[in-house]
Design a protein around this nucleic acid. Structure first.
Lengths: 217, 217
DNA sequence: CCCATTCGGTCACCAGTGTCACAAAGAGAC
DNA sequence: GTCTCTTTGTGACACTGGTGACCGAATGGG
């Protein structure tokens, strides 16, 4: 994690060297605000105004959609090198977020003020290419989310979810409650407990209080 | 519908006057290939190579997602002035479509070769702004689709679907079969018939062979 | 007009998932 | 250790939506 300027400059350099031109990286060091955010922080919420766009250096962010009654569902995870395309709406007038973003682990990122990002769109081709690519990736992740909802049953969705978590957390033991899982999948705790138990009986994982240890994934 | 050059130039002009600069419009007339496509034509399919990006002048296009077994689900409709953001992937290397696009009514559009669109991205700020806006709209439509799948039950989804169709077709009588509706909503014909019948009993619509006449919407 | 095909209506039944209720097992505070 | 709160396990049940079967009505080709 980057505590001082030299650190995050280095990190950004290795992360974005092949993507953003050197000149733009220098601009990034001038105008970007580095941040370190602990796990579980809500970075953005529905209806909130977005005056800056995050660039992810390290960690992971969970992107969720909420319905009017406050129910939520997980859309996808952002990992380092990603950016939040939805907040890119900032570059085009749509200033209100329609999603919620929560850090999934301790995370370091750079905030780029909307006005700065907007001007880069005109000045740096590599920036607008990066933004476009980010949009494209996000669109594909949304399609994956739609596939899951439309075509997959709960047991399958749960398995996918657990695999994703293992990948994101880099740990085969997930420190989470059944209720949390139920929220992400937009189902009920009872159902999750039931399915997890059945997976345990199949030997796929083992269950503990506040923890799920994955054997296969 | 535009049969000759003068027609479609005029149409494109009125449609995109405020969005694309005059100079770019002239380029469009040089490099764009105008097309008229009858209702029900498959413009693009999953896995197909995309070497051009469509710009919609008139009509409507249905965008669907398919799963490996061939089941499909409606994502959203494109209307005139829209463009297919997913095919914009062309501008960035992803050359394979992950969706299916079928004309929902007789449609006129302009195809822009990928290479041309790509060069405009660098030359015309109004073009890259248009492409970005298109991405943003499509993202929000995908979010709406996710909301429907995650948070709404079938009766509600059906009502939304019927309303959308009325709006898109500009006709309160929908000429379609229950099976077609079932395909779009990714459910079964029997279920659709059941729900439609119940809506008819509520006086919301009346049913006929190959037609649904909407009273309220 | 007759036949084949498509479309819509309906019934009985089933599978998947959500809900309610309650008990038991950790875990932390004191 | 005791108390309390959180988490998990589980049984019984309700509900939504999917399936298979079958029939009759409408339509269109010949």
């Amino acid at each position: 994690m980057s505590a001082n300027p030299i650190d995050w400059h280095q990190q950004a350099r290795t992360r974005f060297a092949g993507i953003l031109e050197a000149e733009l990286l220098e601009e990034l060091f001038v105008h970007g605000h580095p941040m370190r955010v602990p796990e579980g922080t809500m970075l953005m919420d529905v209806g909130q105004h977005m005056d800056a766009v995050p660039l992810l250096l390290e960690g992971a962010i969970k992107i969720m959609r909420l319905d009017p009654e406050g129910d939520e569902i997980l859309l996808y995870f952002l990992e380092s090198g990603d950016s939040c395309a939805l907040s890119m709406g900032t570059y085009m007038g749509a200033a209100k977020s329609s999603i919620r973003a929560v850090t999934e682990r301790d995370t370091s990122l750079v905030m780029i003020p909307a006005a700065v990002g907007q001007s880069w769109m005109r000045t740096y081709p590599s920036w607008s290419a990066f933004v476009m690519e980010s949009y494209q990736s996000r669109l594909e992740e949304m399609l994956t989310a739609i596939d899951a909802l439309a075509f997959m049953d709960l047991p399958t969705r749960l398995k996918r979810y657990l695999s994703d978590k293992v990948k994101i957390q880099g740990d085969t033991t997930l420190h989470t409650t059944h209720q949390d899982i139920a929220n992400d999948l937009h189902t009920s705790r009872v159902v999750v407990s039931r399915l997890l138990k059945s997976l345990e009986r199949q030997g796929v994982l083992s269950l503990h209080r506040n923890a799920v240890h994955m054997h296969e994934f």
